[in-house]
Amino acid sequence: MPPSANAATSSLAAISLLGGESVLHARPRVLMDWIPLLRKGLPSASVDAATRITRITQSELARALNIPERTLVRRKREGTLSPEESAKLVRFARVVERADGVFEDADAALGWMQSPNAALGGVTPLSLLDTELGADSVLDALGRIEHGVFA
């Protein structure tokens, strides 16, 4: 699949993980469409959607994003995430969606995200999403799985 088509698919999938058009008040179709949303800050309801759909706790999500849980609680009261927090949440959503695409099964993808992985130094993929390099490592491991290379 050409990179632009792959990016568009990931962006559209991330929409539902973050609450859909009704929460985001937008329908980003390509990666560039996300930028104004991130700069403005995503609605805090996106956090609830992400935890509901992935079935991880708010505490687990806070650790995965490297955002103090108290900050997430405060943002829920305020109604909007900061641009940096929004970018972390979109990164999380894109990686989870990529795992779902590779495994073609949400439960298998979420199980993989929460299981220690030898190819990632024995840590869980979820624990690496707090940094861009960590997320890139997870995406690389998913690419190796998709192409039948040990990961």
Rank of each mutant, 00 (worst) to 15 (best):
R144G: 01
A119E: 09
T54P: 02
E97L: 00
Q114E: 06
A87M: 14
S59L: 07
I53N: 00
G143T: 04
Q58Y: 01
R144H: 06
V138P: 00
A87K: 08
F92E: 13
E85G: 14
L120M: 08
R27H: 08
T54M: 07
E60M: 11
A108L: 14
R39K: 15
E78M: 14
V73N: 14
L110K: 13
R63K: 11
A62Y: 03
E97C: 09
A62E: 10
V123Q: 07
L42Q: 06
L72Y: 08
V47T: 09
S127N: 10
V23W: 03
L128G: 08
A106D: 04
P83D: 09
L126H: 05
E132H: 11
P83W: 06
L38T: 14
A119Y: 03
T124F: 03
R74I: 15
R75E: 14
L81A: 11
A45K: 11
G143A: 11
S127V: 03
L65G: 11
L126V: 04
S86N: 03
K88S: 05
P116N: 12
G143F: 02
L24A: 05
G41A: 02
A118C: 03
R94Y: 02
P43W: 10
D140R: 14
R91H: 10
L128T: 03
V90T: 12
Q58G: 02
P125R: 12
E60S: 13
A135Y: 08
L142P: 07
A87R: 10
F92R: 06
P28L: 01
G41K: 03
E60H: 04
M113C: 05
L65P: 13
